[in-house]
Every structure is written in structure tokens, then in C-alpha cells.
């Protein structure tokens, strides 16, 4: 992949990164004496422009405005349409999930469609109902059909909608990343899929899901083949310790050990997320290229998660130390 065409957008991203929420800002937010004070810290960051007319309680609107801006910026300036799709396709799958729930479970949540998508949700809907669409690409259409088939084969059980959509999303993301031909990005998708797989593995074990049910949840393209995972599943929790070696990270192994002792899945999940972010952060040592854009987007994403966690914690007057334990790395 030609990184020269990413020169301009990389430098745009660098300029923006200097204004992003950093460690100090997060510390300051967490330690702020009140909700309003935590909110004011955002004035020092790239959210400042979107805060001016908002009350602290409306911080979500500021986040949303900021995300819309990010979307417009990336849509306009990313030189590869595929990279843009890779970043935002997740939101299309969220919409697809809503639509599937509407179609098979009769839950109507059209009001809560995600914006900032690759395809208009109406288009997805019209493809689902009439096989007619103006914008969807072939792969996405195929995935819709496949997901619908899977849902119907399982007689529309609610959980299968989530499972099938997630699987389809990972498949599509992996394929786009593969097409992009950038190893850094491809590996990061792989880590994301693997993280989700490990968590699904633990959950399934905890709920003593039968092996054939568990198999339905597995995506290809994680670090491990479905066969390996199934064998590991047979041998229970011991199975997971073996294949975690693929992470090459002592933190992850340590975290797994802790999980096996205290069974705190939330913390284990957080540590896996942190591993993903620490991988993403390696893009800082690279020069211009698609990795810069990709990692900027992921970091923006984890900043939003942190802000939500902090603000929610502050609103409910949760102790600072307690909030800190929930936060993601940045």
C-alpha cells in the first residue's frame, strides 16, 4: 500500500492528536471535585469547540458533535474508501442488528439508528425487505443474506441475532483490512477478533454452553482456528492458557491468571482492551501512512469510552479510585 498518499491526512491527524484528551486531562477529570469540574477539563481538549453553548449535563451532545465532525473529516480526507469503510462499518452492523430485531423479533427501535455510517440505514432496510438497494456493496449484501439465513435456521432466537451480526462484522472488517494490504491494520483487526473470541470463550464456559452452541459464536480470522478453539473448549479453563501464548504479552497472561482466581470478567475484558490500545499506540513510532489515521480513530474511540465512564462515575458520585479502575488505557 502506498503510504505517500497518506502524507497530508497523517499530518492533519498529528495536528489533531496534540489536542486530544491525554493522561493529565484524564487524571484531572477523575480527581475533579464535582461533575461540573470534570466537565470543564474538556475545555482544554479538542472538544472545546463543541462545548461552548452546552451545559455539563449535555456532555453527550458534545461527544456526538465531535464524532460527527470526525466522520465528516475522515470521509472527506481519507484517500482509500476501504479504510473509511473499515472505520465506520461497525455502525452499519449495529443498524443491521436493529433491523433484524425488528424483522424477526418485532422490536421497533428505528429511532435509535446510528448516524455516521457507511450506508444509509434505509438502504439496508430496503435490501432486507425487497432486495433492492442503491449503495450496498456485494459483500455486505451477501452477509445480510447469510445472517438472515442463520437467524432463520435458529428460529429467530434473540441471542443468535447478536452472534450472527458480530460474526458477519468481523468477517467484513477482516476482509476489508486484508484488501487494504496494511499489515499493521490487519493485525489489529485480528487482535480485536481474538479479544472478542477469548471473552466469548470465558462467558460460554461460565454459562456451561454446550459445545455445538459455542461453535456458532466463533469467528474465523482470530489467532486460532475454530478447531483449536473447540479442542480447548473441551478441556475447559486450562484450554485457554495454552492458546493465550499468541498474545506475546505478559500483561495479558498475568491478567488471565488473575481472572482464573477472582473470576472478574470485567477486569479481564478491560485488560484485553488495553492490550489492543497498546498495540494501536505503536503507530506513534511509525511515520506517515494509513496506520496514523487508523490509530487516531481508535484512540478517539477509547477517549470517548473513558469520558463516558468518568462522567457517569462523577454523576453518580463514585469514588475517584473506583472510577480509575474502570478506565481504559489511552
Amino acid at each position: 500500500m502506498n503510504s505517500d498518499k497518506y502524507i497530508t491526512i497523517s499530518s492533519l491527524v498529528w495536528s489533531r492528536e496534540s489536542k486530544m484528551l491525554d493522561h493529565t486531562d484524564i487524571e484531572r477529570m477523575v480527581d475533579a471535585p464535582s461533575f461540573d469540574d470534570a466537565y470543564r477539563v474538556l475545555n482544554d481538549t479538542d472538544y472545546a469547540d463543541n462545548l461552548l453553548d452546552l451545559e455539563p449535563a449535555q456532555y453527550r451532545d458534545a461527544m456526538r458533535k465531535d464524532f460527527t465532525e470526525l466522520y465528516e473529516f475522515l470521509k472527506r480526507d481519507i484517500p482509500d474508501y476501504d479504510l473509511f469503510r473499515l472505520l465506520f462499518i461497525e455502525r452499519d452492523f449495529l443498524n443491521l442488528r436493529l433491523l433484524l430485531k425488528e424483522k424477526y423479533l418485532g422490536v421497533k427501535e428505528v429511532e435509535s439508528f446510528e448516524g455516521e455510517t457507511v450506508y444509509p440505514p434505509e438502504d439496508i432496510k430496503s435490501y432486507m425487505n425487497e432486495r433492492k438497494s442503491m449503495f450496498l456493496d456485494e459483500k455486505f449484501k451477501d452477509l445480510i443474506v447469510a445472517v438472515e439465513k442463520e437467524v432463520e435456521a435458529n428460529s429467530g432466537a434473540p441471542w443468535i441475532v447478536d452472534v450472527a451480526v458480530t460474526k458477519a462484522m468481523y468477517q467484513m472488517q477482516y476482509e476489508i483490512a486484508d484488501n487494504l494490504g496494511n499489515e499493521f491494520i490487519k493485525r489489529s483487526i485480528q487482535i480485536k477478533i481474538s479479544n472478542a473470541t477469548v471473552i466469548a470463550f470465558m462467558r460460554a464456559l461460565r454459562f456451561e454452553l454446550p459445545a455445538n452452541e459455542f461453535k456458532k459464536m466463533l469467528s474465523d480470522n482470530s489467532f486460532w482456528s475454530v478447531g483449536e478453539l473447540m479442542t480447548a473448549y473441551e478441556s475447559g479453563e486450562d484450554g485457554v492458557t495454552n492458546f493465550l501464548a499468541s498474545y506475546e504479552s505478559n500483561e495479558v497472561k498475568e491478567s488471565l491468571r488473575e481472572y482464573l482466581e477472582n473470576k472478574n470478567l470485567f477486569e479481564f475484558e478491560r485488560d484485553l482492551d488495553n492490550y489492543f490500545i497498546s498495540y494501536i499506540n505503536q503507530a506513534r513510532y511509525l511515520s506517515y501512512g494509513p496506520e496514523q489515521v487508523y490509530s487516531y480513530f481508535q484512540r478517539k474511540h477509547s477517549a470517548v469510552i473513558n469520558i463516558r465512564l468518568i462522567m457517569a462515575g462523577k454523576m453518580n458520585e463514585i469514588d475517584s479510585g473506583e472510577i480509575k479502575r474502570t478506565l481504559r488505557a489511552i
Binding site: 484531572r28 471535585p33 470543564r40 462545548l51
Partner: peptide, 18 residues
């Protein structure tokens, strides 16, 4: 360690941003 930001600083920040 980071100091907790006083109300005064945050307030001034806001005014300066305006």
C-alpha cells in the same frame, strides 16, 4: 502529581475560550 484544577482556573479557561 497533578494539582486539582481550581474553579478559578477552569472559569478563566472558559472565558478565554469564549
Amino acid at each position: 502529581g497533578e494539582e486539582i484544577r481550581s474553579h478559578i482556573v477552569s472559569g478563566l479557561d472558559y472565558n478565554i475560550a469564549e
